[in-house]
Design a protein around this nucleic acid. Structure first.
Lengths: 240, 240
DNA sequence: CGCCCTTTTGAAGAAAATCAAGGGCAGTGG
DNA sequence: CCACTGCCCTTGATTTTCTTCAAAAGGGCG
């Protein structure tokens, strides 16, 4: 089975030695496929497995009592979900497949054994969590207006996808509907549409048929106040 | 020096045995005092210490290019800040003292040694991080309208303070200005003021001279869609 | 007392939601 | 092959929420 997305993610966070790689390769992973719009984990679940997204896009979300949905993060290949499992905690949110996904299921005890025996991997998991937290803080920071928030989200997704080698040429396939983007930003799909058009009209991006090109990276980053360090510094800056 | 707030926090997350407690007591902590409105950690800092808030309230924040501020979390006694230090990472945000604070400074290597040698404490730190992440997700979830967001924030602060024994009778001292609340919710102080008045007029809260009483807990929780599990489940539900 | 900080109130304006409808495109079934 | 259906994107008109600007009132403190 192909778990290269997971290895790639780990390598993006820390240097692995041969033993680390062997341990990852030996991890008992069961592959699942989850269709678009189906839940990978449901709120309230108390999973006994940790899941690793191997292929496709997914999203964390919660529902409000009026039925509206808030997306609180996007998952790209290599990202974990349900790392709560190692703490035996219940999911305080759900995870849904945005596209058809390939998902790796790892028993929580096996994951615990891996992190207990391989320091580098424990460190990588810790860094991944810190990075997710930093992303959440940026979402709050950029949520002061729609233009800023949308520009920032596009920068984030492009940067993360780029680190995973998902950008072909300068084009990224972004499988999100405008409604999903709205749920992530706390905006209506209508307003996302209008804001996207503004980004297009101003020549910052090209986005058609879910294919995103950043036409004016400097201007987009300025509009977003995007600094990529928060997504990168985990590796380069560590001297451990 | 009194580091009971830290011990209390750890105990709220996991059972400590005598050895754990000894290790915590032996931790070399240097006490600092930080005056109201002064930074405890600045954005970009690459701290070589981990800080523990021992007394007072503090807030994480970032500044935008237009000078506006977003608060992304409140710290209560026992909370860490700069846990990044153990990863040698730079601060992607700053931390400011909301009130005069007493802060404990712990060398990052000493903290690393503690977590490496005491599994329970490592687990507690991990749970604390998961809890913080859950809080961030709730902030996003509740940010759809001002009334909901404000009600939720008050519930969160009351619940957390209560767990720390900071609620006297049914009154909590909340040292935040309306401007600080606004920076946390992404609202203007003016709108916070009006929304607070609505909560008062509807009989959900009493808040005067920074003293908060929850007058109608059921109604407030309903307005906030507040479920306290995300702040509590770390301990009770673990069977490790 | 007088000053500063915070809260409160009012009025006008901007941002985003809501409501409503039309259009494109892919898949489905006759 | 074409009509039909469902999903998504787009556009326009209206309403609501929140901001902005301005000013006044309340408190604590040197």
């Amino acid at each position: 089975m192909d778990i290269s997305a997971f290895e790639r993610k780990l390598e993006s966070l820390i240097d692995l030695d041969a033993d680390d790689r062997r341990a990852v390769a030996a991890l008992p992973v069961t592959e699942h496929r989850v269709g678009r719009r189906r839940d990978i984990l449901r709120q309230g679940d108390r999973p006994t497995f940790v899941y690793i997204l191997l292929e496709g896009w997914a999203a964390r979300y919660s529902l409000r009592s009026d039925g509206s949905r808030r997306i609180t993060g996007f998952l790209l290949p290599g990202d974990f979900c349900g790392i709560h499992a190692v703490c035996h905690a219940a999911m305080d949110h759900a995870i849904v497949a945005i596209t058809d996904c390939r998902v790796g299921q790892v028993d929580r005890e096996a994951m615990r054994t891996l992190t207990d025996s391989r320091d580098a991997i424990a460190e990588a998991v810790w860094r991944a969590k810190l990075a997710e937290e930093a992303i959440l803080r940026k979402w709050l920071l950029a949520s002061d207006d729609a233009y800023h928030a949308l520009a920032h989200l596009l920068c984030e997704l492009f940067e993360r996808a780029d680190q995973l080698g998902l950008v072909r040429g300068d084009v990224l396939s972004v499988p999100l509907t405008q409604e999903e983007i709205g749920d992530a930003l706390g905006l209506t799909a209508v307003h996302v549409n209008r804001t996207l058009q503004r980004l297009r009209a101003e020549g910052l991006i090209v986005l058609e048929n879910k294919q995103l090109t950043i036409a004016d990276s400097g201007a987009l980053r300025r509009a977003a106040e995007f600094k990529h360090e928060y997504l990168r510094s985990w590796r380069d800056r560590s001297d451990r």
